[in-house]
Amino acid sequence: MASQTLQSVPAEPSPARDEPSPEDAARLDAEGQAYFDKVMAEDSRIEPRDWMPPAYRKTLLRQISQHAHSEIIGMQPEANWISRAPSLKRKAILMAKVQDEAGHGLYLYSAAETLGQPRDQMMQDLMDGKAKYSSIFNYPARTWADMGAIGWMVDGAAIANQVPLCRASFGPYGRAMVRVCKEESFHQRQGFEILLELSHGTPEQKQMAQDAVNRWYAPALMMFGPPDDDSPNSKQSMAWNIKRFSNDELRNRFVGMMMEQVKVLGLTLPDKDIRFNEETKKWEHGPLDWAEFHEVLAGRGPCNAQRLERRREAHQNGAWVREAAAAYAEKQNRKQAEKVSAA
């Protein structure tokens, strides 16, 4: 059991010190592990400079960077409608929302960078197809109503997933999530409002809204990840206080939330099997097509190729700009250094 006097052990020996001997390294690891275990037991927070098990670091890096990639790729289906937003107010809200997503990507990449991987590398992994992002963004945003369905259902599912992450044991991730969740909550409300307006509009508009809800329902439920009995990483993540609730638990909770809200919209969910189980006191939903989920995850979804190509294109088109900015900064630094040495 961890003692009261345990201190955080720095992840890296300070550069001033020599490379520790194997005995010292082993001792530091043991002390680090003890501190880490204590933090987990107390449900407290690990910070970037603390020692952490390599697998914890790896898991977080994968999860946070995937989350960041999802924000960045997730900009595309909505950016697709900025130029065609049907009112200026909606256009302003949509622009602000997609811009928020870029901001979320930035916080998350920054949080991931504290684990030791530069943003450029993460971006490269995304463009090389080595890193994953949420499969939901590989579906097309066909109509304006999709802006409503994405906000209400996709962002709604994201919130259900992310609110517990505000308490994640890794400090920078938890703190980033606090801000992300605040903005997501605004995003969800604007999505709901779009659908509400459509469902109370002309019959054609109502149909457009229902069609969007029908298309986004199952992919949104699958955002919570595979069923619990098929989710190999969940158990460890829960032990590490990264994940707080199981995939199915969150999914069921989300279904319950949507069931209430869909009534206000005057629309229906495309699932005849949704029911509240009086015994378990939990919502249940009909079967989901997990084969499709795995297809899309494997890169065979409707928009996988398009989304990645668009990211690569933007990155390549911007290469000369980034080079110019770096060259200019370097020249400025050199000038500054010359000034200082002349003085």
Binding site: S83, M95, V98, A102, G105, L106, R310, G318, R322
Partner: peptide, 17 residues
Amino acid sequence: GHWISRAPELEEDVALG
């Protein structure tokens, strides 16, 4: 608005947005 999601850096997606 066309630049949002196409800018040379994420920071510019935000700035141009």
